[in-house]
Design a protein around this nucleic acid. Sequence first.
DNA 1: CGCTAAAGTTAGGCTTGTCGAACTTAGCAT
DNA 2: ATGCTAAGTTCGACAAGCCTAACTTTAGCG
Lengths: 235, 235
Amino acid sequence: MSLETPRVSSSAEEYLLTLYRLETSNERAGSSQLAKMFGVKAPSVTGMLRRLGERGWVRYQRYRPPELTDEGRRIAVRLVRRHRLLETFLVQFLDYSWDEVHEEVQQLEHTVSEKLLERIDIKLGRPRYDPHGDPIPGQDGRLPSHRLIPLTRLQEGGRAQVSRVDNRSRHLLTVLGEIGAYPGTSVTRLRTRRNGQLSLRVGRREIQLDGDIARLIWVKPNRAPVAMQARERGM
Amino acid sequence: MSLETPRVSSSAEEYLLTLYRLETSNERAGSSQLAKMFGVKAPSVTGMLRRLGERGWVRYQRYRPPELTDEGRRIAVRLVRRHRLLETFLVQFLDYSWDEVHEEVQQLEHTVSEKLLERIDIKLGRPRYDPHGDPIPGQDGRLPSHRLIPLTRLQEGGRAQVSRVDNRSRHLLTVLGEIGAYPGTSVTRLRTRRNGQLSLRVGRREIQLDGDIARLIWVKPNRAPVAMQARERGM
DNA sequence: CGCTAAAGTTAGGCTTGTCGAACTTAGCAT
DNA sequence: ATGCTAAGTTCGACAAGCCTAACTTTAGCG
Ligand SMILES: [Mn+2]
Ligand SMILES: [Mn+2]
Ligand SMILES: [Mn+2]
Ligand SMILES: [Mn+2]
């Protein structure tokens, strides 16, 4: 049990985070794909994977996709916690909008101390979800989880609560923000009109959404049962 | 006029800041003294000074104490601004005490974006002084300045407002915090009792301070004129 | 089954920032 | 004036991260 915190570099953390995200979504990526994600060339990835392997944070064998070790995953989850708490803080206390907050946190998340994070957590009242509805891991690394379905699988006439919004596109968040599709908002799905589109009632407004967009909004249905088709492909 | 902000590394910023502080207090230091300040060995300093010289942030000639260029000084002042705004924010919004805040900000100050800093500045109402009473440079790099005297030069019977407290010793801040010697506090100097000590009324309490400590408290006298001896040595 | 293109790695180089060991300079003290 | 010591520099090394160019492996396809 060393007293020295082994100090993980920002880059190393970023790699571990990406590996964690991939693992979570059951994807796997090789060096060149990872390289694209980091805006770096392939040999840099090979080198980093080797170093991460030496430190015991990933299991890496040449030509095979890398895997996180438990320790590596722990580091990643701690980073996720910092990321999401910081996002929440910026939105609640510094008037950031949910579409600008992710970018802002990219650097900060690697720098913020345990102490500061704890104060932020307290000020926020130990929130369990971030502004996009993503769960915030606890200090123990556990994630709150709830069963959500994409809006596209809500049955027509069904009411639900928006609970999570995919935050991969900033533009999308802006659009959804205009609609008012923040976590906590109640929506009702109306009869579908046009092919590929989906009608929604949000408050008094009625809205048409493309399937591509609707798929990125996750909801918790109110009582009413979900249309339970055989498992949908690809999600 | 390049669009690329030339990105100054944390280390470089730290060097420039130290050089700036030295310049401000009319001290000069060579490589080994700087090395001690950074917790680094002398050859590292030589190397860094050379690089800072190449970038035009210091004027450096071997064997001579380095000097900041205008550009180097600007970078330092911007860092001072970030540092002091962050300190103020942590104290006002996250319940930090003034004796722990300096440490906390050491990393953060190099990471925080212009945007975040601006939001913090707004939230704080564009404060002009930090929790220790140190002036916060504006975006233009100008420092608010007021004429202060050390408590030791306040005449007996004189009333004054604590305005700045030297923050070089964390322990000292703790002590002064217990006394309640925060900027804004009104104090009256009483007749001196013992040699080297100084009596003070703070609210209803009466307090004895060693000269060493009193010298680190800077006050703004209320109306009453200051005992104007020939310029004191060393301060 | 064998070829080829894509994916991945290796080799060698660069920058920043650090170090220890060895050398040089400056400045003081006799 | 000269010599000694402390301050300062140079040299060679190392680690992290990144790059390009060249090589190797994998895997898909005919
Ligand atoms: Mn990041
Ligand atoms: Mn988020
Ligand atoms: Mn710092
Ligand atoms: Mn301060």
